[in-house]
């Protein structure tokens, strides 16, 4: 499988504080990869290092193109949709305006029809102010908006955060759908290792800014020692 995203020896820091110490990982075309680990392990920073929302060194390569020096807008234009921690919804804009923002980079009429196939309920809510949606709906809106960017790689930061188990399952069902039907590669950060490993093909476990473990989802799930030491379930 050809690598869509490749990180080589990537480090990142916030001011004086180093958050990533030279990590390397890959995400293949059409692959779902999970990033697991405890709070403060550097999962969020890894996504930010890809999208350019934190200053980084090393190599970030997407589809053969080096993006290490690119800012977030340039990374987005190269086909990365990053749904950040907290979802990054424009809470004061309407649902529809949020979707229009997702299609900002695309020429011509945005493909709202396909989006509504995946998220049919959005149509009835199009004029509602996005900030008044429930947490699960906001997460879905963020997904729909990211999909409208027509990315090659979708990055999700803790999609389950603050959501009820049932809603979380629904979110991950849509993610799986997008992956299988649209061939979208996904890099997902999760605290909830059980659900993430259910969706992902491979996973990396981060510990204090370095990769502690990597392997297929099945391997990680079936190894009891790993499960109790790193995944906590």
């Amino acid at each position: 499988m050809a690598a869509l995203l490749e990180l080589n020896d990537v480090s990142a820091r916030y001011g004086q504080v180093a958050a990533l110490h030279g990590i390397s990982l890959t995400v293949g075309e059409g692959e779902v990869v999970a990033l697991l680990g405890a709070n403060g392990a550097g999962k969020t920073t890894t996504l930010r290092a890809v999208s350019g929302t934190v200053r980084r060194s090393g190599e970030v390569i997407l589809g053969g193109k080096r993006l290490t020096r690119s800012g977030p807008e340039a990374v987005a234009r190269n086909g990365v949709a990053h749904v950040p921690e907290g979802r990054g919804i424009f809470t004061q804009l309407s649902v529809w305006e949020n979707l229009r923002m997702g299609a900002y980079m695309r020429r011509g009429r945005p493909d709202f029809k396909t989006v509504l196939d995946y998220f049919p309920w959005l149509d009835a809510r199009r004029n509602q102010q996005a900030g008044t949606l429930s947490g699960g709906e906001q997460q879905m809106l963020a997904l729909a908006r990211a999909f409208l960017q027509r990315p090659k790689l979708l990055m999700l930061d803790e999609p389950s955060l603050g959501l009820a188990p049932l809603v979380t399952r629904e979110v991950f069902r849509v993610v799986t759908d997008l992956n299988e039907k649209e061939g979208l590669a996904v890099l997902v950060v999760e605290q909830n290792a059980a659900i993430a490993l259910g969706v992902a093909r491979r996973a990396y476990v981060l510990e204090t800014g370095s990769i502690a473990l990597a392997g297929s989802a099945d391997e990680l799930r079936s190894n009891d020692a790993i499960r109790t030491a790193y995944l906590g379930y």
């Binding site: 916030y14 001011g15 930010r48 929302t53 990053h82 950040p84 921690e85 907290g86 990054g88």
Partner: peptide, 13 residues
């Protein structure tokens, strides 16, 4: 700011 602002809330880290 020395850190980029947080895209979730738009508030500076």
């Amino acid at each position: 700011s020395t850190t980029p602002s947080d895209p979730a809330t738009g508030v500076e880290a």
